[in-house]
Amino acid sequence: MKINFLLNKKPVTIDVDPMKRLLDVLREDFQLLGTKESCGEGECGACTVLLDGKPVTSCLVNVIQAEGKEVLTSEGIAEEPLGKLLIDCFDETNAVQCGFCFPGFLVSSYYYLISNGELNLEKIKKALSGNICRCTGYQKIFESVLLACERK
């Protein structure tokens, strides 16, 4: 089935099994390797992308669900001013350890900045509660997002 969507602001068309996971389409068909697979069941957030501006776990999204919509991945966010700011803040705070969860945290943090952005630790914790870091670097991750909220 032919599926059209906006990928990181560029219109794309792909002829694909409509049930293929958006995660696999991004990684295999578009070589966007920032989006990671970890649990594959929506419980870790490593595969988070924005679908029509809202964060989703792309391992549980079938590509048919992206039809006519806008997909923004960590690569696309890294080109945005607020995305760049977040990356700088994660860098300064040394919040990235092994790095596997980072693209997912970047997407959820970016969504927090654009949808709320309040300098509020509890709200940040909640916004990031669907993402898991097995290096357990949460404290520094929260500090990074607080710093980005201050600077934006």
Partner: peptide
């Protein structure tokens, strides 16, 4: 669920 599952 979680904020990133509530959207789907």
């Amino acid at each position: 669920a979680s904020p990133i599952l509530q959207t789907s």
